[in-house]
Design a protein around this nucleic acid. Structure first.
Length: 420
RNA sequence: GUGAUCGUCGUCUAAUGGCAGGACAUCAGAUUGUGGCUCUGAUAGCGAGAGUUCGAUUCUCUCCGGUCACCCCA
């Protein structure tokens, strides 16, 4: 077999045997989000490239080396590398800021980043994301984190919550100065990437995995020591609320989100079960983004969960919910004397079962009687009915429970009720 | 962008510088009115290309793909 083309690297097929896991997960997320007042928003897979450059940040890896960009006839377009930019664009463009605040929205999307593929990291991946627009209150931060944690718990995934505050623009300016002052004497010893980070985004210096840089960074100043009074108070209130909700967390001063738009609270939920790409959910507050995108100054925050990583973590815990199976298989046993009447009765009976929401099957491959029995067994049908000459005459059939082998007699037109 | 590692039927897995074998799965039959067990048969594979060789699935190189990791992120 030589296919004309095969699946692209970094993309995945979800087969019928697995798709129920996705469906159940997506449904659980949507249902949970609804209980917090979040409603779904849908927006295009592609946007103008400037949108992402402006919102995600010009210096970020995502923008600099990971975007799938296409030059169209009228403009240059990019497949969304994340959800926030498009979601907020849709909120602004459609005047949702004029509705009652806060606006709470969620989305289930695929997103695209051109990175080297590995476990938990794909070119096309899927996210569940939620955004809350219009609240600056610490209670909003707490609720967003609570909802993310709620979903993860319901999925049966064990995670650790790490939080940090990276302050506002003012705190960060002060902090950058302190960082540069700290690193300046050793600047020459830093790795190449860190040397360029020194000017552009010194917070990333803390994130480097190189042993030398780690050593130099060991006693670097910590952002939380440089927060302005307001940011410090905000962070303290968020932490207090989390505690009162009984949500465990670790303050991790090294969490530095890779997207430029974050301010104040940032957080990650980490799973230990899925390899190196352990962040299963990441998010935070982005009070400056909406203004940056040309809207009115409006506070907002949100998170995104990586669906593939969640499903890896669920599989690691072996707690997938179960798939549905065939409820009823009908064997149409036509002979010369029935002249096709058995098949007609079979089709009608199957339709009646489907009208009751049952999964009903009959032969579509020209199989013989025996082969149909084997097939019904193979697909795990719960009940089996044979319709042939004698059944047509009497108007009754025997409904066989395939698991126990027991049979019971029923009127032909009552089959759909019996198999409940 | 970098590094490591692996590519044999749909899946799992053998052997081999000289006819690529098995298991599971699939299909058919044994068994034209009741499945699962058993038996028989069929379908189906060396990722691609160059090189070495009388001969390459095996050795060498290149590419492609998978996996894992760095980086980055969900």
């Amino acid at each position: 077999m030589e296919l004309v083309a095969t699946r692209n690297k970094g993309a995945e097929d979800v087969l019928p045997s697995e798709s129920y896991i996705w469906q159940n997960t997506e449904r659980l997320m949507a249902d949970t989000a609804k209980t917090y007042g979040f409603r779904e928003i849908r927006f295009p897979t592609f946007e103008k490239t400037e949108l992402f450059i402006r919102s995600v940040g010009e210096t970020t890896d995502v923008v600099q080396k990971e975007m799938w960009t296409v030059k169209g006839r009228e403009s240059t377009y990019t497949l969304r590398p994340e959800g926030t930019a498009g979601a907020i664009r849709a909120v602004l463009q459609n005047g949702l800021l004029n509705e009652a605040m806060p606006q709470k929205i969620y989305y289930q999307i695929s997103a695209f980043r051109h990175e080297n593929v590995q476990k938990g990291r794909l070119w096309e991946f899927h996210q569940f994301g939620a955004e809350m627009v219009g609240s600056a209150a610490p209670a909003a931060d707490a609720q967003i984190i609570q909802m993310a944690g709620d979903i993860l718990n319901k999925l049966g995934i064990s995670t650790e919550l790490h939080i940090n505050s990276i302050g506002c623009k003012q705190c960060r300016t002060k902090y950058y100065e302190a960082l540069r002052a700290y690193f300046a004497p050793d600047k020459e010893k830093l790795c190449e990437t860190c040397q360029s980070r020194f000017e552009k985004n010194p917070m990333r210096l803390l994130d480097c995995k190189s042993e030398i840089c780690k050593g130099i960074a060991a006693n670097a100043p910590i952002i939380t020591d440089y927060l302005c009074d307001e940011c410090a108070e905000h962070f303290a209130k968020v932490k207090a609320l989390l505690e009162s909700l009984g949500i465990e967390y670790t303050v991790d001063p090294r969490i530095v989100r890779g997207l430029d738009y974050y301010t104040r609270t940032v957080f990650e939920f980490i799973s230990r079960d899925i390899g190196a790409q352990a962040t299963v959910c990441g998010g935070g507050r982005y009070d400056g983004l909406i203004e940056e995108m040309g809207g009115p100054s409006t506070p907002a925050l949100g998170f995104a969960m990586g669906m593939e990583r969640l499903i890896l973590a669920m599989k690691a815990k072996e707690n997938g919910s179960s798939d549905s199976v065939c409820d009823l298989y009908i064997v149409a046993a036509d002979s010369d004397s029935t002249g096709g009447k058995a098949l007609e009765a079979t089709v009608r009976t199957a339709s009646a079962a489907r009208a009751k929401g049952k999964w009903a099957e009959y032969d579509l491959c020209g199989r013989g009687f025996k082969a149909q029995m084997k097939y019904a067994n193979k697909i795990g049908a719960k009940y089996l009915v044979v319709i042939g000459e004698s059944e047509l005459e009497s108007g009754t059939v025997r409904v066989k429970n395939m698991a126990t082998g027991e049979e019971s007699e029923t009127a032909l037109d009552a089959v759909a009720d019996v198999i409940g």
